[in-house]
Design a binder for these strands. Structure first.
Lengths: 124, 124
DNA sequence: ATACCTAGTTACTTTTAGGAAACCATTTGA
DNA sequence: TCAAATGGTTTCCTAAAAGTAACTAGGTAT
C-alpha cells in the first residue's frame, strides 16, 4: 500500500487562515494598513454595511491575536482608536501576496470561463 | 473630516481566501502537494475524519478553480485520481508562506499568553 | 444469488456565522 | 429636561456550512 504523507503542519496554516477569514477581517485590515489609526466610528463609516456587532467582534479577535492595537481614551463620549500593532505589520506582506494572487486568479478564471462565469459558479 | 481610504481590491483577497477556506481545503491541498496524485479513497484514508460529501464538494470547488485535476478511469469499480493542476502549483508558495506565518504566529501567541491559552481563546 | 468494491449522490439534521434592532452609560450642549 | 454623541452589549433570528446516514451503479469474486 502506498505511503501517503501526512499533510503535516496544516493546522498551522489554519492558524493563519483564522486570522484573516471572517467576512470583514480583510477589509478591516486593509483599512488599518492604509490609515495608521482609525476610530471605531471611522471604521464604521468606511465600511457602511458592517454592523457594530460584527465590527466589534472582528476587532476583538484581531486584538486577541495582537494584530491590531486598541487605545481607549478615558473621556465622554468615548473615543477608541484602532491601529495595526507593530507585530501586526508583519502580516502585511502575506495579505498583499494573497491579494495579488487573487487578482491573477480572477483573470485566470476569466480565461477559462469567460467574463460571465457567475452561472457556472452557481452550479457548484 | 478625515479622508479614509477605501481598502481597495480587498474583494480580490477574498477570491484567494475562497480557494483555501473551507474546513478541509488546506489539508487536501497539502496532501496533493506532497503526493502528486491520489485516489479519492486514498484521500479519504489520509483524512479519516472527512466525510465523502465534504471531500467531494471541496474537490469539486478546487477543480472548478483549476487548482486540482480530476482524472477518471473508465472502469469498474471506479477509479478517480486527483492531482494538483499545472496552474494549481502556482498556489504552493502562497500556501507555504501562510503556513510558516501560522507557525510563527503560534509561537507569538504562546509568548503572549503562555502554553495554555485555550481558556482565554474561549472567552472571545 | 449474493456480497463487495469504488466513487460518489441525496435527503435530512445540526452547528456556526452573520445580521437586525433595541438597549446602555456618561457627559455636554440646547 | 431632553436630545445627541460614542462605543459598545444583548437578544433574537436567518442563512450558510458542515455532518450523518442511507442509497446508487455496475462489474467481479464466492
Amino acid at each position: 500500500m502506498k505511503n501517503i504523507t501526512t499533510g503535516e503542519n496544516c493546522g498551522e496554516l489554519q492558524v493563519a487562515l483564522d486570522i484573516i477569514v471572517g467576512k470583514w477581517k480583510p477589509i478591516i485590515l486593509f483599512h488599518l494598513m492604509e490609515n495608521e489609526k482609525l476610530r471605531f466610528s471611522e471604521l464604521q463609516r468606511a465600511i457602511p454595511e458592517i454592523t457594530k456587532k460584527m465590527l466589534t467582534s472582528q476587532l476583538r479577535e484581531l486584538e486577541y491575536n495582537d494584530i491590531v492595537h486598541r487605545k481607549v481614551y478615558q473621556q465622554v463620549p468615548p473615543k477608541v482608536e484602532y491601529s495595526m500593532s507593530p507585530y501586526g505589520h508583519g502580516l502585511k506582506p502575506l495579505l498583499v501576496s494573497m491579494r495579488s494572487w487573487g487578482t491573477e486568479h480572477l483573470e485566470h478564471l476569466e480565461k477559462l470561463y469567460g467574463k460571465d462565469n457567475e452561472e457556472q459558479k452557481e452550479q457548484i
